[in-house]
Design a protein around this nucleic acid. Structure first.
Length: 120
DNA sequence: CTTCTGACGAAAT
DNA sequence: CATTTCGCCAGAA
């Protein structure tokens, strides 16, 4: 396996009550595609908050445990829309901590730009 | 070595 | 809306 560690570390940056998509995570990790993130999830440590990761549409990914995922998210205060998808307008991840940015090879400007793209 | 597939995304049609 | 196409790369077959 490759370094899923950067992926795991980034996911750990997602606080309670917020959710992130595969694309969001991947976009912050150059050279890493959404599928890598998904793969990293499958072999994720138990302490990893995998349930905070959903698809771009906000709906839980098609895996066993999707219902429990929704349950945990809602328990954390994440608002789920009627169609069963996460309400991005309220619970979208605000981005990684500054410490993470320092540790990464990315410039703060790039990160800001990427985050701005999420709102679109 | 080649091929296929995957907890996916985004743009094109 | 749904369907298709392409891209991403690591494992499995």
């Amino acid at each position: 396996m490759t370094d899923n560690k950067p992926i795991h570390d980034l996911i750990r940056e997602v606080p309670e009550g917020e959710a992130a998509s595969y694309g969001m995570i991947a976009s912050l990790l150059p050279g890493v595609g959404p599928r890598m993130v998904a793969r990293a999830m499958r072999s994720a440590p138990d302490d990893l908050a995998w349930y905070r990761i959903v698809t771009a549409s906000g709906a839980p990914a098609g895996h066993s445990g999707a219902e429990e995922q929704r349950r945990r998210l809602k328990a954390e205060g994440v608002n789920i829309k009627k169609n069963g998808a996460v309400d991005w307008s309220e619970n979208r991840w605000k981005g990684p901590s500054q410490k993470w940015v320092e540790k990464s090879r990315l410039e703060i400007e790039e990160v800001m730009e990427i985050i701005a793209g999420w709102k679109k």
